[in-house]
């Protein structure tokens, strides 16, 4: 049980797909304008990851080694199309606001990467845990970026129920007059992510310096 939890924690912290591995940035930067979009996209990617990881892990011994990548692409494309239809039916407002980025989950490097490096070599339960971990890590990273962009860019936070667009779960508005609306533009997305990565790199460098000081003593 403990190693399954370790796999999940791995996807959230140590190998976070956006902050550490820098995969799947296309959709992450484009979607993160509001919390609702972030949660919706995170849900979609987690669902696709779980479906594709479980299916690939189940049939991993039946796939000839030479045609691995094409088989993965076909399975992932089918999973994404299912998710697209489900979102069109159950979350229509989210479907229109996410737009073309739902089909673009197919070419998201995270899903193909996890399929190739984890699901094709491990058991079904381990692949399920890995998918959950990676999905949660992706959603968490998206939430952090969108929270910063929405808070500083529009001066408030708001979250709408994805399944029922008329139901606002919360809507806070802290300040309107000094909101930096650059952060709601595309360039704001780049700058936000750059600053977050710089902060994480700063923490990593500090840890390395501390370890080196400890070794010298």
């Amino acid at each position: 049980m403990k190693d399954k939890l370790n796999i999940i924690k791995n996807g959230i912290i140590k190998e976070n797909p956006i902050f550490i591995m820098l995969l799947g940035l296309c959709s992450a930067l484009a979607i993160s304008t509001s919390l609702t979009n972030a949660v919706g996209m995170g849900m979609a990617v987690t669902f696709v990851l779980i479906m594709s990881n479980v299916i690939i892990s189940t049939i991993r011994h039946l796939i000839p080694d030479e045609i691995r990548i094409p088989v993965f692409i076909v399975i992932i494309a089918t999973a994404v199309k299912c998710v697209q239809f489900l979102m069109n039916a159950y979350t229509p407002a989210l479907y229109t606001s996410l737009g073309v980025f739902i089909p673009l989950i197919v070419v998201n490097c995270i899903i193909l990467g996890r399929a190739e490096s984890f699901a094709s070599k491990n058991s079904v339960i381990d692949s399920l845990c890995d998918a959950i971990g990676m999905g949660l890590g992706y959603t968490l990273a998206l939430l952090i970026i969108s929270a910063i962009r929405e808070l500083i860019g529009t001066g408030g936070l708001s979250f709408v129920n994805p399944f029922n667009a008329t139901q606002t779960i919360f809507r806070f508005s802290f300040f309107k007059s000094c909101a930096i609306s650059l952060l709601t533009q595309p360039s704001g997305a780049f700058i936000t992510l750059g600053c977050i990565l710089a902060y994480l790199q700063h923490r990593r460098l500090k840890k390395v310096i501390e370890i080196q000081k400890g070794e010298r003593k």
């Binding site: 591995m21 820098l22 995969l23 990548i69 692409i73 490097c109 193909l112 990467g113 190739e116 490096s117």
Partner: peptide, 10 residues
């Protein structure tokens, strides 16, 4: 290609 994490690259 050292910085590339693209697994699908042959």
């Amino acid at each position: 290609c050292a910085g590339c994490h693209n697994i699908a690259c042959t």
